[in-house]
Nucleic acid binder design. Sequence first.
DNA 1: ATGTGTTGTAAGTATAAATATTACAATTGG
DNA 2: CCAATTGTAATATTTATACTTACAACACAT
Lengths: 140, 140
Amino acid sequence: MRISTKTSIALHLLVLLEVFKDQKLTSEILAMSTGCNPVIVRNMIGGLKKAGLVNVQRGSGGASLAVAPDNITVWDVYQAVDLIPLNELIGMHPNPSIKCPVGSKIYDLLEKPYGVITDAVKSAMSGCTLKQILNDYYGG
Amino acid sequence: MRISTKTSIALHLLVLLEVFKDQKLTSEILAMSTGCNPVIVRNMIGGLKKAGLVNVQRGSGGASLAVAPDNITVWDVYQAVDLIPLNELIGMHPNPSIKCPVGSKIYDLLEKPYGVITDAVKSAMSGCTLKQILNDYYGG
DNA sequence: ATGTGTTGTAAGTATAAATATTACAATTGG
DNA sequence: CCAATTGTAATATTTATACTTACAACACAT
């Protein structure tokens, strides 16, 4: 398994919000660019709003960044839109035998190495900002 | 998503191979402890064999480690059994609009930060050995 | 050399997860 | 009040994952 496409969609949306900040960006328009459904976009934007990263107007429509791009990290975005906590990044098989001495301990045994791995993901994500992506967009 | 349960199953199997190395371990027995199907176990063991990590006897049955536990890392195991390459760890949305200047570049833009993240996963996985897990099993 | 038990692998089935769609109430501004 | 839009629920569809069945290839014991 892998991390869902939600983070990618959300980052795409945030780039759009900055690049076209002078325009009114409805979920319909954002859906066009991302290639996914307007309802999905609204859910994503909703998650980002809950996290304080964007502003949205309910009736009139239109979304915009609420935070400067260099203060938005991939980690912030992931947490805002992906419901799966990072400690479930690596799937565990659901029915190890509790009668087996190994099976009964396997979750505890895997917890340590998996914790190291997910911590690495978290800190790598925390080091990547929207600003860097935008620089790459304008510069490259 | 997330990384599939395959890595967890494979690590479970490797622990069993070491802990019960004096016994003949068939896919049937291994399936009991892991709680998954014997065919899945055979596929896992097959992947580990291809990677040179275990020995298996075809007709007579029974599997064993081919490499010392301190020379087997979680990274080795992940590569051996999970078919999804790490650069697909974070899913990309499949249909960004090529008519939009952002949509047409989004894959390239995400490549950099995602590369940093997957490199972090790789190096964290490379630092976790089967030996450490076994020490935890016996010691804890 | 024959029988039993096992691995290796393919094909088909079932389950679970992710994403898309439909529908509509709530809200804003003209 | 009307048109456009968000927020959200319920349902459907698609995709990914895991399971099951089936059987040929193989090894060993007798």
